Computed example of a mutant assay.
Amino acid sequence: MKKSFIIASIILLLIIIGAGGAWMLSQKSEPKADDQGIGHWFKSQPPRASFIEIKDLVITLQADDNRPRYLLLDVVLVVRGEEQSAQAQAFEPAVRSATVGLLNNQPFSDVRARTIPELHDQLLKRYQEEANQLGLKTLPFDDIMISKMVFQ
């Protein structure tokens, strides 16, 4: 009887140790956001992207029959953080001017034939040139998106 009690105790102890080990392993494989240790205090999180809309840019284009055609364009500036957002808002008139300067009086068929990525790259290049003329080394925003292109 003493022998069977010792064997049963050992088996019970092994089951408890196995269950405890399995529980500990399952806790390590699922890290929680608030249980990252001291290291997460020293990591800086990049600011989330926010957007500044520049709406209703109306650009006059040349038609093949010399009558005016129009492009209605909305551009969105992608910014990160409050400081960059304030700088981008202050730069908005330069974005409007550069956009109109790039596209105004271009042939309708040429502008219509451009793909969105081509126009995106041309606008970014023109914005960088405008920033350089104003004494800025970099653009006060990370990227742009074209949210509306309506031809008339």
Rank of each mutant, 00 (worst) to 15 (best):
N105V: 02
H120S: 10
F108E: 08
P140M: 04
S109R: 15
V75H: 03
S109M: 13
H120D: 13
T99F: 02
L12H: 00
N105K: 10
A90Y: 01
R112S: 09
L61M: 14
I54C: 05
L72P: 00
Q27Y: 08
N132W: 04
G81L: 10
H40N: 11
I144L: 13
D110L: 13
K137H: 04
Q122W: 11
A33P: 05
L12F: 13
G21A: 11
S97A: 13
A94R: 05
V95A: 05
V75Y: 03
A94F: 10
G21W: 10
D143R: 06
I16F: 03
G81W: 04
A8L: 13
A8M: 05
A49H: 08
N132Q: 14
R69W: 11
L61H: 09
L14S: 14
K3E: 11
E53M: 07
I116N: 09
M24K: 02
I11C: 12
N132R: 08
Q27M: 08
I146Y: 13
G135C: 04
R114E: 08
I144V: 11
R69Y: 09
I144P: 09
N105F: 12
K28F: 13
I10R: 01
M1K: 13
V79P: 01
R112K: 14
I38C: 01
G21N: 09
L119E: 07
Q133C: 00
S147F: 07
P31K: 12
E30I: 15
F108A: 05
L71R: 09
K2M: 11
L13E: 00
L25Q: 10
F108D: 07
F91D: 01
I144M: 06
A8T: 09
D110S: 14
K43R: 06
I54K: 09
D74G: 03
R114M: 14
I7F: 07
S50Y: 06
P93C: 06
A8D: 04
D121L: 03
Q27T: 04
D74Q: 02
L134H: 09
K125S: 12
K3A: 08
T60V: 15
I144R: 03
K43F: 08
E129R: 03
L123F: 09
A63H: 12
F108N: 06
R67S: 12
K148D: 04
Q106P: 01
I116G: 04
Y70R: 11
A90S: 06
Q62F: 03
R96Q: 10
R67I: 13
L139H: 05
Q133E: 12
A113G: 06
G135Y: 02
E82Y: 05
F91P: 02
L57C: 04
A98L: 06
A22S: 05
V58Q: 13
I38D: 08
E83M: 02
